[in-house]
Design a protein around this nucleic acid. Structure first.
Length: 457
RNA sequence: GCUCCCUUCGUCUAGUGGCCUAGGACAUCGCCCUCUCACGGCGGUAACGCGGAUUCGAAUUCCGCAGGGAGCGCCA
């Protein structure tokens, strides 16, 4: 049974990079009919917050990445960590270190000055006496040999133990540290595949050494490259949205973000559009790219428009309604959302944009003096005729409206554009809208007549 | 500084020794369609970081170099 886990630390929102890692973990678990586990790594009490936990949970729900187990919280496993630390201590695989932070700092500076890699000098490693002073607990890392593992994405990776030092596994206040809790939890949770960001590559040999000291079987590792900003630098707030939920705010569909994220670093031939089912079928961690990828908003936009046009109507409608609500647009007295969506989907990249451009279907429009210059004297006759014919149309359909427009234009010897554009301005207050017949149809007879009258008086 | 990782069009990628005068997608440019904006259709510009080596033959293998990134915490 394959078991993967997503293990974020709740010190912020769910960002794009984390979401992609979670997606890869989730896809692999689903593909292998295994389990996807959510574990909150909250051992940093200073920075972990309940809000962050909620933001991460909300983000995962929105993306549709459901977990089979969890969320587990590391702060609830303290007894277990202490137990394992005791075990290590008893077996002489860990030791108490009484070095002060000051000494460590001086050591560090001296090493850096000598152009050496800063690391603990193992001063307390062979201490035989117990002291009263405060202490941390360090893991006795092997002093020679190499740690080698086969990364599913990068292939064989190896590290010399001489490059590693005796890392702290318990702080002076007794709180276990990251590299230790990860190992214990992955072991206890029987994680078979550790899929995580490649900023953890250098932690892996340390974790393997602890795992071995514990006699645990090693999981498979897959280190996915990070996501870069459009400038090739590490993705950060200055690149715009980095939080998953912020993409929702901006009017993106979860399907679009999923599809974009999965293709960022993974591919299946030349295919660009994938349904979730296809992803589960085709995805494999070993096909993930080794190189970091730059985030490209334009392509996300393109995918978003694709899913606005072809995605699950229920989801599209739900997000569209949410956007309208955020803008304070009340839709009860206007055209049905699905018809507006249908009319607008080909001309917007996001649902926020769709909402912003749909105001005139639901709210009164303002035609500025500037725009009134479009209503020339020669046009007035045609506008009057159009108003009257629309007012008496037997049935209010797009087709009938279209015919009416054609007739009025023909009678006045106007080209369609000459009539349509001023009408568009009169009805929408702007120069851009869906086809004029569709626009008239959706705005509705009463409002159309009102708006035309407004121009004609 | 040390260790580790990465390197195909502007961007995401296909490519695993001959099918590559390097394919697709986004973006961009031009044309067509057209009542606006779009959608769509057609076409164009555009890349194997550099240098060696192996080979009849290298984007694909090996070695250097350069550039970029990560890690080196009583953070995760």
């Amino acid at each position: 049974m394959i078991r993967t886990r997503f293990a974020p630390s709740p010190t912020g929102y769910l960002h794009i990079g984390g979401a992609r890692t979670a997606l890869y973990c989730w896809l692999y678990a689903r593909k292998m009919q295994g389990k996807f586990i959510l574990r909150i790594e909250d051992t940093d009490r200073e920075r972990s917050t309940a809000e962050s936990v909620q933001a991460i949970l909300d983000g995962l729900v929105w993306l549709g990445l459901d977990y089979d187990e969890g969320p587990y919280y590391q702060t609830q496993h303290m007894d277990r960590y202490r137990e394992v630390i005791h075990l290590l201590l008893e077996q002489g695989k860990a030791y108490r270190c009484y070095c002060t932070k000051e000494r460590l700092e001086k050591l560090r500076e001296a090493q850096l000055a000598r152009k050496e890699k800063p690391r603990y000098d193992a001063l307390c490693r062979n201490l035989t006496t117990t002291q009263e002073d405060s202490f941390v607990i360090r893991f006795k890392n092997p002093t020679d040999g190499i740690v080698e593992f086969n990364d599913l994405i990068r292939g064989k990776l190896s590290f010399a133990n001489t490059e590693l030092d005796d890392l702290i596994i318990a702080r002076s206040d007794g709180m276990p540290t990251y590299n230790f809790t990860v190992v214990v939890d992955d072991w206890d949770m029987k994680i078979t595949h550790v899929i995580r960001g490649d900023d953890h590559i250098n932690n892996t040999p340390r974790q393997i050494n602890i795992l071995r000291a514990l006699g645990a079987t090693l999981p498979h590792y897959a280190h996915v490259p990070m996501i870069l900003g459009s400038d090739g630098k590490r993705l950060s707030k200055r690149h715009g949205a980095v939080s998953v939920l912020q993409y929702r705010e901006e009017g993106f569909l979860p399907a679009a973000l999923i599809n974009y994220l999965v293709r960022l670093g993974w591919s299946h031939g030349n295919q660009e559009i994938f349904s979730i089912e296809e992803l589960i079928h085709y995805f494999d961690v070993t096909d993930i790219n080794r190189a970091p990828a730059a985030f490209n908003q334009e392509k996300l936009m393109w995918l978003n428009q694709h899913y606005i046009k072809t995605g699950d109507p229920a989801v599209v409608m739900k997000e569209f309604a949410w956007q309208l609500e955020k803008l304070g647009i009340y839709t009860a007295n206007g055209p049905p959302l699905n018809e507006v969506t249908h009319a607008q989907c080909e001309r917007v990249k996001t649902l926020r944009e769709m909402a912003e451009r749909s105001r005139y279907f639901y709210e009164e429009v303002i035609v500025t003096d500037d725009m009134r210059t479009h209503f020339t004297a020669e046009l007035m006759g045609a506008l009057v005729m159009l108003r009257d014919r629309l007012a008496h149309l037997a049935i209010w359909t797009k087709e009938m409206i279209h015919e009416t427009l054609m007739e009025v234009a023909k009678i006045h010897d106007f080209k369609m554009g000459k009539l349509a554009q001023p009408v568009r301005i009169a009805l929408t207050g702007g120069s851009v809208s869906p086809p004029i017949d569709v626009t008239i149809y959706l705005i509705g007879r009463k409002r159309v007549i009102e708006r035309l009258n407004h121009i004609l008086t």
